[in-house]
Each structure stands twice: as C-alpha cells, then as structure tokens.
Write a protein that binds this DNA or RNA. Structure first.
Lengths: 274, 274
DNA sequence: CTAATAGTGTCTATTAGACAGTATGTT
DNA sequence: AACATACTGTCTAATAGACACTATTAG
C-alpha cells in the first residue's frame, strides 16, 4: 500500500504542499463590567456589561471596529495565541479565557482564506489601571430580541448597532444559525463572534461561578446581583438571588458606606463551590 | 498610515504570504448506540454506547485507529467539511452535527503544523444498512474515572485502551486540562477528541433532547432509559426517568412483544419540546 | 422625615429522590 | 409458576417563585 517502510522514512519524504494551506487568526471577545454614574446621590451607579473593541487603522476594514486578535504563529500552540494577544492588549496576565467557536466561512476575510478561532475572556476592569492600548476602547452592551432577530447596541466612542437573525437549526438542542442582517461599523464576521460570546456567557452564568472572573475581590451582593441582571437581561428577585448565591460567597466584616442609603456588607468569592 | 487609498487598492496589492500558513483538518467523532445480545431469553439486549473508528492504512500512524476526518479544502466552508466526510463515510445525510473544539498544539501531527476542528455527530445505526466504508468499524465505549484519571476502553475489532489525566484549570467553571498518559492504538491526539466528545454528550443529554438523534423512530422507554444510563454511566430510577421523559415523547399504539416478559409500548419523539 | 437600598421570613407550588407496589407477557 | 421487565402511586425532601416585611444610612 504505502511506498514507504517506516514512519520515519515517510516523514522524511513528506511533501507538505500537497494540500493547500491557509492562515489562522484568533479573535478575543473580552467582557467586563463597568459602572455608570447616575445623577442622583441616593441611587447606586448602574452596572453595564461591556466589551473591548479596537479601531482598525489600516486595511482591510480601515476605520471600523473589531475584536482584538491576530495571526497564529506557525510555532505557537493555538491556545497560546490569545494569551499573548491579551497580555499585549491589556498588560495583565491570568485572565479567564475559554475557546468559543471556530469560524471558517470561505469569504469571511477579503484578503484570503482565513479561519479564526474565537476566545472569550473575562476580566475585572479594576485590574487594568488604564493600561489599555491606545486604539482600544470599551463599549457597553445592550441588546434585545424580537421575532428571532437580536438587536445589539454597543455604546462607547461611537454607537455601533447590528442585527442578527436567528434561524432554528436543530430542534433537539435548540441551536440556531446566525446571520448578520445589519452591520455598518464592525469588521469581518465579528458581530457573530460577539453574539456567540454573549450567549455563551449568558448560559454559563446560570450554572457556573464564571461571573466572579469579572468581579473585584470585594463586592456587595447588590452589585453582584446587578451584574447577573445586566448579563441575563432580566430582573431577579432579591431573596431568591441571595439564597442561591449565599453558598458561593463569604461575608466579610467590611462595609460599604456613603451611598445615601443603608450600607451593605462586602462579600468575596468562596472558591471551589462550583 | 496606510500606503493605500482604498480597500480595493489594498486588496489588489495584498501579499498573502506575509504570514506563514498551515493546514487544517477536521475530525469527526461519530457516536451511536448498539445492541449487545445477552444469552438469556428473558433478558433485554444491552445497549452500548459506541464510536466509529477508521483503521489507517498509510503513514503517519499506519495501522493505528483514528477518527474519520480529512483536510479542509481551500474553497470549502469549515462546517461543510464534516458534512462531506460524513456523507462519504456513512452514505447518509441529515446527521446531527455540532462543532466540538479546535485542537492546535504545534506538534499534534508529525507531518507538519496542522490545526484540527473536531465535530461530534450522532446517528441512529439503523439508518446505516451496513453501508459503512470498508476500513471503518464500530467500537463500544466503556469508561470510568478514578483519581482524576479517566480510563477509556473501546471494544471492537481490537481492544483499545487509553488513559487521560484531568487537571483542574479553572475553579469557577470546573474546566480541566486533558493530558494523555497512556495510548497505544489511537493516532494523533484523538484520545483527547474522544474524551471531549464523551463529556459534551454527557452534559447535553441532561438538559437537551440530543439523545433522540441516536434513537430509531420507535422505541420503548426501557430502551431509551438504557441509552441515558450507558451515556451517563449510572443507573436511573424508573419513576423519576419516566416523569422527566414523559413530556418529550408520544406514546403510540404499537407494542413490542416476544421478549420473555411483559411487552411495552413504543414511543416516539415529540418534536419541539426542548 | 424620606428615598433608596440592604437584608430576612414565610407561604406555596413545583420538582427530585426513594421505595414499594401492581401488571403482564414468555417459557 | 417463575422470571424479567413494564409501569404506577405516594411519601418526603429539597428547591424556586412570590410577596411582604424590617433595617439602616445620607441628606
């Protein structure tokens, strides 16, 4: 069958050009939570769910926004690429990172065939100390769904909106095909990546402790609840929330005061509860 | 900034060789369920959870077993590749398929840098009519976990065993790093792919209707329960199982008899219940 | 005092786990 | 009759949803 007698011999003679090659990139969707001041001394600042975007200063998609990312190096493990890019972009290490999905439509990049593996990262903004790269910027995420169309608005240096149509692909697992039907300001297929990220986070927040990757070390239960609410896009009932969360946090003796209303205890994450 | 004045001009002059390119493949883990006869006229045949493997007849990894797969064509959407390969391998269409994970360690293939996106497919074996490709063969899966080491045994034309060590990677979401610590008969990093597939299926069977992709049109609740049990690797209590499953199936007036015990009604999947 | 959030108590409805029991075919 | 599986009833424990209530601060 084979014209070679050993693996070594085969490998020595292997012609790696028999299959056409392509390039691979990685895109990272970095989520965080930000505070938005409210002009009422009594009210709490509002939590917003946000994503980091980069303004492209060169072609293709010059002047559009995109997710941080870059090419995979030929001698670099796939999962090391997002770590490298993240360290580069945010100047911090030890960031929560998980592989999201690999996008590989033939025409997703106008330059050439590029397949991109996307990752989702979660960080606590307080760790950043404004050490962001110059052309990167945070955008608050707002979204709603209507008639199987998801309308996403990203609010930051600009207002970016896009719409994605969801078509049921499989009844047994409720999976949808996403199709961008409106998008002006985002490069590549990044609207798809962002929506995939939102959905993944929304799912995981319900059955894991993933949210704590976006929280500072100490937080009030009110703040934590707000983060859940802004990601899940719905209000939660206080007693139910506290019941469920109580096993995941430890109450400290620290107290947050000066808010114009009853002060609250600060809590921290109780590790290993998931 | 850019030396070009328009996207078109940029693209016309784009040198696609600035980044080193690589090859991509796809590996498909095809799961199904098989019956194993028991030498007792009264007892039901035992359900087994099985995976399709292909014997390699050429280098690299000549004579080892691997998952069906192949190279992504340069002008083919990533998600079309597994469909093509699956049609080729099984001669059937309309198979449940979902993207699993993209593996991209630098040295996962001895030939050259190859990144592989794995997919999980589920089929009802009865649809196959022995139309399998000649070098493909089903293996029953058995596994158990002990001290964070998963021991997997695949039983078919040969007995294949491998061990994978799980190291906790992230406390908040209970994700593990997998490391193959014993493997003789499987090619590439396919032990990792198989275990990822098992874990994905095990998870999804609990909160979706995914199992029905592996079932024939008509089945008894006993059979269905056995499939759950063999995938989850644990016994379930009858009344609880029936309570939960009752909303997902429709009872027909067909009856399965001749089994040496009380006959049972046949059920079918009630679509759109998930 | 009031506005606003912090935090608790409790009722009810629903669901999950466990076990015991009855039903009905084949040999 | 004996065996093996089919299928059901019911008790209990745990959990989720809803609502009403009390507590405490800044201004």
């Amino acid at each position: 069958m084979s014209k070679y007698n050993s693996e070594e011999e085969f490998l020595k003679n292997y012609d790696s050009s028999v299959f056409e090659k392509l390039s691979m990139t990685t895109d990272i969707i970095i989520f965080s939570v930000s505070d938005e001041d409210v002009n009422n001394y009594r009210k709490l600042s509002k939590k917003k769910f946000s994503v980091l975007l980069v303004k492209r200063d060169d072609y293709p998609f010059k002047d559009k926004w995109c997710l941080p990312g870059g090419f995979i190096k030929i001698d670099e493990d796939l999962e090391d690429a997002p770590v490298r890019i993240l360290a580069n972009e945010t100047n911090i290490h030890n960031i929560y990172l998980e592989q999201l999905y690999t996008f590989g439509s033939v025409n997703r990049d106008p330059r050439m065939r590029i397949v991109s593996t996307s990752y989702m990262a979660l960080i606590d903004k307080n760790r950043l100390n404004d050490k962001l790269n110059s052309n990167a910027s945070w955008f608050n995420i707002e979204y709603y769904e209507e008639d199987n169309v998801v309308n996403v608005t990203l609010i930051g240096e600009e207002i970016i909106t896009f719409k994605i149509k969801k078509t049921l692909k499989d009844l047994t697992t409720d999976r949808y095909k996403f199709e961008v039907i409106e998008n002006d300001k985002l490069a590549f297929d990044h609207p798809l990546v962002i929506l995939s990220g939102i959905e993944r986070l929304k799912n995981k927040i319900e059955y894991t402790d993933i949210v704590f990757n976006m929280m500072p070390k100490y937080f009030t239960l009110g703040e934590l609840q707000q983060v859940y609410e802004v990601i899940l896009n719905k209000k939660l009932l206080d007693p139910a929330f506290r019941r469920i969360i109580s096993s995941k946090v430890i109450k400290t003796d620290k107290i947050k005061t000066g808010e114009g209303h009853r002060p609250s205890y600060l809590f921290k994450y109780k590790k290993g509860t998931n």
